[in-house]
Amino acid sequence: MPVRLVGRQVRVHLHASHLVVYDGRVEVARHERLMAKSGSRLDLDHYLEGLLRKPGALPGSTALEQARAAGKFTPVHDAWWAAVRKAHGDAAGTRALIEVLLLHRHMPHEHVVAGLAEALRAGALTADAVALQARKFAETDDHPAATDRPAQPIGSNVVSLTQRRLAQLPADTRPLPTVTAYDQLLRLHRRTAEGIRP
């Protein structure tokens, strides 16, 4: 069950094929029932708040391995995680990945994975960039006419804000700056320092 409920008394309903955990009247977990004796099934999502405090526990965790085996933690997740760790270091990169994994609570899995792939192509190695790209995919899915549109080339969803701002500015007609006057002052200063009068 979620790590935030550690120490609380919860109610468990055991069914033939699954079990459901309730905190009061709110369902907090649902798992497929394991038929093997002494088996365990961990949901990576339940540990994310704790992993934010201790990101070093994620790489070797059983929950991560089970998420990989179930296809919830995809090769795209791994590729983005490797890139962000290379750019920001292990702890900060893993925290960024955990923030991305938290997006799965509010967004469909396929949108988050598509956002990760797009952010990775663009070199955008922040959880905010992934969230933005995932929302863009969600918006195109929400519009029925979106399926009639021609496919956009890879990377076309990522907009450079600098290029966008520059495109809206008028042409700069000012002359290029010059430092000729300052060069003359330097020559004058050197002569004075050497004792030569102008």
Rank of each mutant, 00 (worst) to 15 (best):
A146N: 07
L166G: 01
A167M: 11
R164C: 05
R11Q: 12
L14F: 05
D43S: 07
P144W: 11
D141L: 00
A127Y: 03
R191Q: 13
R190T: 10
R165P: 00
R165T: 05
H189W: 12
H109Q: 09
P198K: 08
L161N: 06
R197I: 04
R68V: 13
T162N: 13
A146F: 06
L58V: 07
R30V: 12
S61R: 02
S156M: 11
K86A: 15
A131R: 11
L132T: 08
L188P: 01
V21G: 09
R41W: 07
R190E: 15
H104E: 13
E99N: 12
V3D: 15
L48F: 03
L42N: 09
D45P: 00
L185F: 09
P153N: 10
P144Y: 05
P2M: 06
G7Y: 02
K72F: 06
F137D: 01
A145G: 08
V21C: 14
F73C: 07
L48E: 00
G115T: 02
Q163I: 05
L52E: 14
H109C: 01
G155T: 04
D142T: 01
R8M: 07
V113P: 01
T74E: 07
K136M: 10
S61A: 11
R85M: 13
P198F: 10
A145W: 08
H189R: 14
L185A: 12
L101N: 00
G60S: 09
L42G: 06
V159Q: 13
A124Q: 10
S17G: 14
A92F: 05
A145L: 14
H106A: 15
Q66P: 04
P144T: 02
P108K: 09
A83Q: 09
L48W: 00
R30N: 09
R85G: 09
D78R: 12
L48V: 01
V26T: 13
P75C: 09
L51W: 04
H31V: 08
S38A: 13
G93Y: 04
E32D: 12
R191A: 15
T62L: 15
Q66W: 05
A122K: 03
S40A: 14
H13C: 07
A167W: 04
L161P: 02
L169W: 03
E27Y: 01
A87V: 02
L166D: 14
A193E: 14
L34A: 14
P59A: 10
K72E: 15
T173L: 15
L120I: 00
D45Y: 06
V28A: 03
A124E: 13
L64F: 06
R25M: 06
A70V: 03
D142W: 07
V26M: 11
Q66H: 03
L116Y: 05
K86I: 03
Y47E: 12
P177F: 06
A87C: 03
R197N: 06
L176W: 08
A122S: 05
K37A: 10
P198E: 12
T180C: 03
G39D: 13
I154N: 10
D141Y: 03
R8H: 11
L64H: 01
R149P: 00
Q133I: 01
G71E: 09
A69E: 09
I154G: 10
T192H: 12
V28W: 02
A83M: 04
E139A: 15
L101W: 00
P175D: 06
R121Y: 09
V28E: 02
V159E: 15
P150F: 07
H18W: 10
